[in-house]
Computed example of a mutant assay.
Amino acid sequence: MSKETLEWLNANTLIGFTDRRGTAWHYRASMQGEEPNHYSGPIPVDDVKRRLFNWEALSSPVYVEDPRGGLAQVPGRQAIVRSDNGHVMGIFSDGYEPHPYVEWLINTISRLLDSDLSIGSAGLLKNGAVAWVSVEVPENVVTPEGVEFRPHLFGATSFDGSLATTFKRAVTSIVCDNTMAAGLAERGQQVKIKHSRHSRLRLAEARDALNIVYALADEFSTAVRELCRVEVSRRQWNKFLDAHVPMPDERGRSRTMAEHKRDTLTKLWDHDHRVAPWSGTAWGVVQAVNTFTHHEQNVRGAERAERNMLRAVTGAIDDLDQGTLITLSKILDRPLSVAAA
């Protein structure tokens, strides 16, 4: 990862509850400046507003060069521009309605949640065009199987057209700092609001749909328990690799990449502390694939932090974990009770 990206993450993300989760993988003390971006406890709301959201997204007319000289305004189009540095985050029709970060992320989440939930992380990506805020319970949850995690609700939105405003339940695995599908049973409950002039969030409906954070801890713990009870032998693991990472017949780049992915997955399965404690179980298979995707897989067209966060928001993490379980259920020739139908 480039130095510039590390500097951005250290300046434009805030990480809370480090007494419970440890420092973020991107933490560099030398890049922290006078005000560190890590907090031992919850992140104060005023700090999120001051350090991340202290600018506005302004609507500006769009002009093109007129071949006869000067500039001509493009009818029906607007640019969304950062008020502090003039960065153009996106160009849209006049019907596009930006959702200001403080109003839609900070204020809305505060109305959705109870008083014992606090901000656990917040950040900006894509030069400020994408933002998220995550709210969490103070303590980690540890299952009898030794799986430690943090259930949370995060809100995210964008000024570049890449995301509708989204509120979604999710789980963070502490041992590997991975985002995982909520409950693993189905697509994580979420609410999406389009950027239109008539968009609004019905708080009561959102509260019911999301079921907030508390029930998620029980759901995820149950899923972990059930998956840890499902044995996966070495032979079945190898058959899973054959299905998950098919080996091309012809030698070449595709075969080399497949061999590398299979080798890395097996190293995680056999030796890595993020996976090996649960190898030989269905939970170990889910953990291996999820950890590989978060931390080992080559990234094209996006930096890893950006890709991982966007994957969590868009639901690709749900698809990843459920796809792993569906493939494994076929290998084991038995239904997995938490696998999607």
Rank of each mutant, 00 (worst) to 15 (best):
H294F: 12
L105V: 01
G146Q: 06
Q78R: 10
G315Y: 01
S221H: 02
F159E: 13
A316C: 06
P151I: 07
C176T: 13
G86A: 15
S30I: 07
R50W: 02
L265V: 10
G155I: 00
N140G: 04
R300Y: 08
T291G: 03
I193W: 00
E205L: 14
N298D: 08
D114L: 10
I174D: 03
R225D: 10
R187M: 10
F17R: 04
D318E: 13
A316Q: 08
R262Q: 11
V213T: 05
R207T: 15
R68P: 05
W269S: 02
Y39N: 04
R235E: 11
W132L: 12
T281W: 02
S93G: 13
D84C: 13
Q189T: 09
Y96F: 15
S173N: 07
N211F: 03
V45W: 12
T324L: 01
E145Q: 11
V213Y: 02
I317S: 08
L163Y: 03
I326V: 13
A185S: 14
A339R: 03
L325G: 11
D272S: 15
V81W: 00
I193D: 02
R77N: 04
S196Y: 02
Y96P: 03
A217Y: 09
L336N: 03
L336H: 01
R235M: 07
R334E: 13
W104D: 03
N178F: 01
G76W: 00
R200S: 13
T314Q: 04
A302S: 10
N308Q: 12
F159L: 10
C228R: 08
